[in-house]
């Protein structure tokens, strides 16, 4: 292969030759000047140990550049840098803003498949370290999200009231407010707990007591009357977003608040994904 057929090589060779010729030419010019040149012009009166200086004016181009640099320097010190400095946080804020705008327009009307996919991603990153990658709560270390409530959990809330849940103020942010402790006790509490934990089936006594003691807030069907109180049948969007916002304490332990870490669409997605876990089971 002939390396000269490549035009980049040709250009490089041409450039090298030009540089070589120019270097030789310039060097020869100065050699000639050193050998033959004579100093001309008037000397200044000052001299330093015999070394004098010509009375030449500074070249105009150089003077303009010098003055221009001084003016630019003053501008940069006083205005340019202080008012227009680069900011890493500023760039971050713009990056986030641009991303959010894109995110919101892309997921303005997500389908259920979109939400499931997004929810699974968020769940694996944010939730799975405690709830396990399958959502079963790693052998009781966290809430098993493939089912709603256990009998012990219902009993615990009946006995201790909702002050034992939610953030340290006992709030999950439901309009119905706090549930007082001890609405039922003894065998009555057990019966209701069994009825609720069993998916609102069996235990007629529990069903009856539920209607008289619990239904006024949680609704006759236990679905929380459209977000007035927690839904006891399934993980609806409201309870997921309430727990994510306020955190939760319960018989198992404490879940920290995830306030501000997820966008509303992501919360909806996680709720959809968590519902899909119990539907599949």
């Amino acid at each position: 292969m002939n390396w000269l057929s490549d035009n980049v090589n040709q250009l490089a060779l041409l450039g090298a030759a030009a540089i070589l010729i120019l270097t030789i030419g310039v060097a020869a010019k100065y050699f000639k000047q050193i050998k033959e040149g004579k100093s001309e012009g008037e000397l200044k009166e000052e001299n330093w140990d015999g070394i004098g200086e010509y009375k030449n004016n500074s070249p105009i181009g150089w003077s303009l550049a010098f003055i221009g640099t001084i003016i630019w320097g003053i501008w940069y010190w006083l205005v340019g840098y202080p008012l227009d400095a680069y900011s890493q946080i500023g760039e971050y804020n713009e990056e986030v803003k641009a991303y959010q705008a894109k995110f919101e327009s892309k997921w303005a009307n997500p389908t259920k498949e979109d939400l499931l996919g997004m929810g699974e991603g968020v769940f694996l990153v944010q939730c799975s370290p405690c709830h396990g990658i399958d959502g079963t709560g790693i052998e009781g270390k966290a809430q098993d999200l493939t089912r709603r409530l256990l009998k012990e959990e219902v009993l615990d809330v009946i006995n201790r009231g909702s002050a034992a849940l939610g953030n340290p103020n006992g709030q999950l942010g439901y309009p119905m407010g706090m549930m007082p402790p001890g609405l039922l006790s003894g065998a009555d509490a057990e019966a209701v707990a069994e009825y609720v934990a069993n998916g609102f089936k069996g235990n007629d006594k529990g069903a009856e007591l539920f209607q008289s003691a619990c239904a006024s807030c949680h609704g006759p069907d236990g679905r929380g009357m459209n977000g007035m109180a927690p839904n006891l049948r399934e993980y609806d969007d409201k309870i997921i977003s309430a727990v994510l916002e306020h955190g939760k304490r319960g018989i198992i332990g404490t879940m920290p608040s995830f306030k501000g870490r997820l966008t509303p669409v992501q919360v909806k997605a996680v709720a959809t994904y968590i519902r899909s876990l119990s539907e599949g089971a």
Binding site: P129, C130, I133, G253, P256
Partner: peptide, 21 residues
Amino acid sequence: GNYRTSDWHANHMWDPTSVVP
């Protein structure tokens, strides 16, 4: 400290793969 709890840390430091496969 914002997103993990004491019991999680204890489980994790005792056997990391039990909580993070």
